[in-house]
Design a protein around this nucleic acid. Structure first.
Lengths: 338, 338
DNA sequence: CACAATCCTGAAATCGAATGCAGACCGAGG
DNA sequence: CCTCGGTCTGCATTCGATTTCAGGATTGTG
């Protein structure tokens, strides 16, 4: 910066004023400074500015597992929204481990992020570290909550599950099970409760809620195998997320059980594979969630806010025998490519 | 920090020495400082340290589209490897747009990242901005290259395509097409060339290479529709990535064309949906790629390095009529869940 | 016991940009 | 011509941690 000042024949203060643009500078010097910047290829140091301004113009995003496709979609939308105000994103992955998560929170705070967007790994396990963080910087919980008195952006699970159960009822389902009982994630717990409630209200026998070791495809397969060894199939299997549903679907089909002829299956989240596989699921509009999260981050509030977006059911072949199994709805899978 | 110093009855220098641990401090003062830190809830300011050390202890990762599942897997592995040396990741998404990409490079440099990992959006379009960046900080190109004299970590496309073509030849394929000609991505261009070469060497008639508007599922569907309107099907359709292959698969099946009975289809990258759908594809070991990228980032070199990892073919139902369409290989889909 | 060698410590300078303050400069009005 | 109001500029300080340097305390040795 001093070099630029010398080159332009002004003081460093003036260079700073030209660059920030907050204070008027006489046109002649302004252009001289701009010319000097270009000539020397000068690029301001964001760290120094951040130190002085006590604001790093960055937010931290911490997710339990970036390979879960719901997160990239949210991150992308949030990042684009934030870029509009020159804020950028420091991303961390907690590896589904509360200890790693706590360390990542620490490094983010150390880096003086202006705000935090966190999807807690575990309802109870994540709470202590998250509380400490939330006291230091504005924090928004994404998708799952661990603290009641901190901003939260998530999905209206009651709406989603009600849509699923209504959809099943219309198709004549009398008995159903819910797969994906998992106390560590508030989102899944809410889905389980909403499912049971909706079934009760509609006279569907919610045979039971199946707890899983972890809500992934392997657990789905495992459950499918126990189902194959057991007695009668329910009319429908509703899963807490798509991975469970897809795992079940694959395993049952391998055993010759047809879907939707023998059993209806639903998932949740609308991951890309759900479309290819014709899995009926619930779509959360992740871009909206990301944008909304960005807005909460940018406009901190003293009183905790809860935002819940309403999801929409996406009916596909796994619950509708009139839809050929591979005839995926008109819209193409979005985006991905290598 | 001064507060801690006062509380502990020492100077700020001593506090710094205790915290960095590079200089010896007598035990009594050391514990006093540690106690004071805990008592005051002191947390060092990483920005100030970065300013003074002229190293932000962070690297920038810039990908064209974080929703493409190959990137989260690489990012995750890289992030974990980097975390071992207390380096963290500033992530940006270029939105498949070279102009956005250039802006993101600028903000990353401004933030004084110690190194850059970039998957260029476009072979020619990304070159100018990337060249500027590479002159300032150690840069590694990921998966696609735009500059010949800058580190590159990617896949041995010849190996992958050779495995695919060998696999097809054993299954009696005589004619094949390659779908996914796309000049903007070096990886896809290399795959196309490798495919043609492998076919020529093995006496398979490479009927033609189909160019696409963009290598996504929609392009795959579009190609499938033109195929349905045309003359005879080739024996095999080899795609530049899984999204193209899945789009084709879905559209052909909807039209009653069976895979693998009527046509063999292969993809590339082994995205999660490929496993569920039983798509034969090529797996790149993305975690290895991420780790290797992290290593290149941490140990800059003056002479440009090219690292190519050898991928492995993953045979599935789409090329093997003995495998039931849904009987996915023994290993469960990894990781993802909501 | 004296002197040297060693070990620690604190004061001060540094990284690069932003800004309060005071002074320079200009034009207008008395 | 002097003064006042206003605009712009530069000096010096600040943000918070690190590091050099020099001096003080301590220990060891002859």
């Amino acid at each position: 910066m001093k070099d630029v000042a010398r080159e332009a024949g002004v003081s460093a203060s003036t260079v700073s004023r030209v660059l920030t643009g907050r204070t008027p500078v006489v046109p002649a010097k302004r252009t001289a400074v701009e010319r000097a910047c270009k000539k020397l290829g000068y690029q301001p140091d964001g760290l120094a500015a951040a130190l002085r301004n006590r604001s790093s113009q960055s937010v931290g995003i911490l997710v339990p597992d970036i390979e879960n496709p719901i997160f990239p979609a949210v991150i992308r939308a949030a990042e684009h929204e934030l870029a509009r105000t020159a804020v950028d994103v420091v991303l961390c992955d907690a590896d589904n481990d509360v200890a790693v998560e706590a360390r990542r929170l620490d490094t983010l705070l150390r880096r003086r992020v202006d705000a935090l967007l966190v999807c807690p790994v575990h309802r109870e396990g994540s709470a202590p570290a998250l509380r400490v963080a939330a006291r230091r910087v504005p924090t928004v919980q994404l998708d799952r909550y661990a603290l009641a008195d901190v901003d939260f952006i998530g999905t209206d699970q009651v709406s989603g599950m009600t849509q699923v159960v209504d959809h099943l009822r219309v198709r004549g389902v009398r008995t159903a099970v819910f797969v994906g009982g998992y106390p560590g994630m508030s989102s899944l717990t809410e889905r389980a409760h909403a499912f049971e409630r909706a079934c009760a209200d509609r006279g569907i026998e919610a045979r039971r809620t199946v707890a899983v070791r972890f809500p992934d495809a392997e657990s789905g397969r495992h459950y499918a195998r126990t189902l194959l060894g057991g007695a009668t199939l329910p009319d429908a299997i509703t899963c807490a997320n798509d991975e469970l549903a897809l795992g079940i679907m694959v395993e049952l089909r391998a055993a010759g059980i047809r879907c939707p002829e023998d059993v209806l299956i639903t998932g949740h989240d609308d991951v890309p594979a759900a479309e290819y596989m014709g899995l009926t699921t619930v779509n959360q509009s992740l871009p909206d969630k990301g944008r909304e999260a960005a807005r909460l981050l940018c406009h901190p509030s003293t009183s905790p806010r809860q935002v819940r977006l309403t999801p929409t059911l996406v009916p596909r072949a796994s619950t509708d025998r009139d839809t050929p199994a591979y005839a995926v709805g008109g819209v193409a899978a979005e985006g991905s490519h290598a």
